[in-house]
């Protein structure tokens, strides 16, 4: 409970650059994600949002820069170990294992915890948060509807008891009603599980309503950072991303 602990951000991105082959995508990106808050990253298609999350998760190597997770340097840590260190990414489209049951998907979500005796209990807890999954446990994940699939993907990520949950466009392909339900579930999770959330979204109005902080990414650079409130009232953000 010392004050120094509280000031260490959950995630610190310092001068991060990356790209595919010789094509640079992110240029010297720096920002902090404070503990226990929801941070939104917004930006147009191709701004580098997915690349940013993939690099933080370790799926794409950074060409330069540093990543600190809760004060620990994870820049050289392989993706699998970053999951064990408390980082979880819900990739775009959810990417469930389609020929496995919902339950097997959830079990694999907890893979990084090792042979955990608490598996049953964790699945029960998760099914309480995502009631739609409780009745679908023995169904193949590939047969779920779009909304159920996203719920299952978030639930699977939560199985590893992450400290930092990153979501890449969870609302893609969902109806406005389903999006609202999903985002409110994520808000509830953030409140109840002492979870830090980074969320990339195209639905800017909705995500700024749930987030506390926001960053705007454009052509691989952070162009603006502030509180979600500031973003909501910013003329340029409104015109560019909120269609006003």
């Amino acid at each position: 409970m010392s004050t120094t602990q509280q000031t260490v951000p959950m995630l610190e991105v310092r001068g991060l650059s990356t790209g595919y082959g010789n094509i640079p995508v992110l240029h010297d990106v720096s920002f902090e994600v404070p503990q226990g808050k929801v941070t939104a990253v917004i930006g147009a298609n191709g701004a580098g949002k997915t690349t940013l999350l993939s690099t933080i998760a370790g799926l794409i190597p950074a060409t330069s820069g540093q990543l600190m997770l809760d004060g620990t340097d994870i820049s050289r840590t392989p993706a699998a170990s970053r999951t064990a260190a408390g980082l979880a990414l819900v990739p775009e489209g959810g990417r469930l294992f389609p020929f496995m049951t919902v339950r097997e998907n959830l079990e694999l979500g907890a893979y990084s915890l090792g042979r955990d005796a608490g598996m049953r209990q964790r699945i029960a807890e998760i099914c309480e948060i995502f009631p739609v999954l409780a009745e679908r446990q023995s169904q193949m994940a590939g047969h779920l509807s779009g909304g159920e699939r996203q719920m299952c993907a978030v639930a699977r990520a939560m199985m590893s008891r992450p400290r930092l949950l990153m979501l890449d466009e969870p609302s893609v392909g969902l109806s406005p009603l389903m999006t609202e339900r999903l985002l409110s579930t994520i808000s509830d999770l953030a409140a109840s599980e002492a979870l830090t959330v980074v969320i990339v979204e195209q639905r800017v109005t909705e995500v700024l309503a749930m987030a506390e902080l926001a960053h705007m990414l454009d052509h691989g650079r952070i162009m603006k950072s502030g509180t979600a409130g500031e973003f909501r009232t910013d003329r340029m953000i409104q015109e560019t991303y909120m269609g006003r």
Partner: peptide, 24 residues
Amino acid sequence: TRNGKAIRAVAQDRTAARLMGIRV
């Protein structure tokens, strides 16, 4: 088995498997 499920996970989606913490 736990390893067997990891093998199937890698077969179905290796990126998602990596995100689960599986050493592909």
